[in-house]
Amino acid sequence: MSDSTSPDSVWSPLTGESIPVTASDALLKIGAVAERSGVSVKTIRFYCDQGLLQPVARSDGRYRLFDDSVFAELALIRRLRAMDLPLATVGTVLGARRSGICTCNDLQATIRGKFTEIQQRVHELQSLEAELNTMLNTWERCGGR
């Protein structure tokens, strides 16, 4: 059985109604999305449960159905999570993106904060590196005892 589906109609959680689907709509089940994106089914379900991803519809069998826009959203989620941004912030960015309302200032402030945090961590690691280097350079051999 294929993971893409094109039934006559599907239930939309966004409108609460059954909507007609044509063959050109090519809605994808979660397994097909996972395979094409490289993101596990479990992670996609988690993102849906957290409100980060929204299926465009549900099949008669209640399978989540996605359109191709899910791939751009997954890529954005991966980039934001790679920056170690919290899920709440990722959700805010996705919500703003979907609504078309620009939150550039908020996002820039968040990224600046993350940048400062990373600079502090780099400084701490450089200090640790210097301390370890000093320790190794001043090491006294114990003669194997």
Rank of each mutant, 00 (worst) to 15 (best):
M1D: 10
S2Q: 08
S2M: 11
S2L: 13
S2E: 14
S2D: 08
D3I: 06
D3E: 13
S6V: 04
S6G: 03
P7E: 02
P7G: 04
S9L: 04
W11R: 10
W11M: 13
S12I: 02
S12T: 00
P13C: 01
P13H: 00
T15L: 09
E17H: 10
E17Q: 14
S18W: 12
S18M: 09
S18E: 08
T22C: 07
S24L: 11
A26Y: 10
L28S: 06
K29P: 06
K29L: 06
I30Q: 00
G31E: 09
G31H: 09
A32C: 07
E35H: 03
E35D: 07
R36C: 03
S37I: 04
S37A: 10
S37Y: 00
G38W: 00
S40F: 03
K42A: 00
K42Y: 00
I44V: 11
I44C: 04
F46Q: 09
C48M: 11
D49I: 04
D49V: 08
L52R: 08
Q54T: 14
Q54S: 14
R58S: 00
S59N: 13
D60I: 04
G61K: 14
G61L: 08
R62E: 11
Y63F: 12
L65H: 01
F66I: 05
D67M: 01
V70D: 07
A72S: 01
E73P: 02
L74E: 01
A75E: 15
L76W: 03
L76Q: 02
I77K: 05
R79T: 07
R79V: 05
L80W: 05
R81Q: 09
A82Y: 11
D84K: 06
L85C: 11
P86D: 14
T89M: 09
T92K: 09
T92A: 09
V93R: 10
V93M: 08
V93C: 10
G95L: 06
R97H: 11
R97D: 13
R98D: 04
S99M: 01
I101L: 13
I101K: 15
I101A: 15
I101D: 15
I101P: 02
C102W: 06
T103L: 13
T103H: 15
T103P: 06
T103I: 15
T103G: 14
C104D: 08
N105D: 15
N105K: 13
N105I: 12
D106Y: 08
Q108N: 10
Q108P: 07
T110A: 15
G113L: 09
G113N: 12
K114G: 06
T116R: 13
Q119I: 05
Q120N: 14
V122E: 12
V122Y: 07
H123S: 11
S127A: 12
L128A: 10
E129S: 04
A130E: 14
E131G: 15
M135A: 14
N137D: 03
N137S: 07
T138M: 00
T138K: 05
W139H: 07
E140L: 10
E140H: 09
G143A: 05
R145F: 10
